[in-house]
């Protein structure tokens, strides 16, 4: 499997072992992002890094197993409910002038969004490169859901992800 190195700046303790061991000078960047053009995926930096800030990720991810329709249906019901609740919390937050209620509703809105994203992830959208997500993106390109749909954003995504529309 073809791989390349990535660095988590949150974990990096600037020991710079990656600089010493990299055979191609891919790790000497100032912005924390390892140069993908130069990286040959040898893994020397990840092995040497004392803070475990570097890991190797594949160029092509394995396709996750398909979800059963019964699970997708049940999860979608839950997800629809969460989406409705999120809209209620957002509207209350937008309308209130009370600080406590505003913060609580913002928290509820964010919390529901995170947990709904998780539910949808486990309804067949684990991987952005997976069949379901790619099909959705293609569908938006062919049939934009509304006239004001940001088609250029979807086009840029398709291009970056190597999707032929």
């Amino acid at each position: 499997m073809e791989k390349y190195a990535v660095r988590n700046i949150r974990l990096c303790t600037k020991d710079c072992l990656c600089l010493f061991v990299c055979p191609t000078g891919a790790t000497d960047t100032e912005n924390s992002i390892i140069d993908v053009e130069k990286c040959i995926g040898c893994g020397a930096c990840a092995e040497a890094c004392p803070s475990k800030a570097i890991s190797l990720v594949p160029t092509i991810y394995p396709i996750p197993p398909r979800k059963e329709d019964t699970v997708v249906a049940a999860m979608n019901r839950l997800s629809a409910k969460k989406a409705d609740e999120e809209a209620v919390a957002r509207k209350i937050a937008g309308a209130t002038d009370k600080d406590g209620l505003y913060r609580l509703m913002k928290a509820v809105e964010k919390s529901i969004r995170l947990s709904n994203a998780d539910v949808l992830r486990e309804s067949g959208y684990l991987l952005p490169q997976g069949d379901e997500a790619v099909a959705l993106l293609k569908d938006w390109l062919w049939n934009p859901p509304t006239p004001d749909f940001p088609k250029e954003t979807a086009e840029k995504l398709a291009e970056l992800m190597g999707i032929n529309s």
């Binding site: 979608n76 997800s79 629809a80 969460k82 989406a83 409705d84 999120e86 809209a87 969004r113 709904n116 994203a117 539910v119 949808l120 959208y125 959705l136 859901p145």
Partner: peptide
């Protein structure tokens, strides 16, 4: 729904 697509 749009709300679900947003979360997705």
């Amino acid at each position: 729904s749009p709300g679900q697509l947003a979360a997705l």
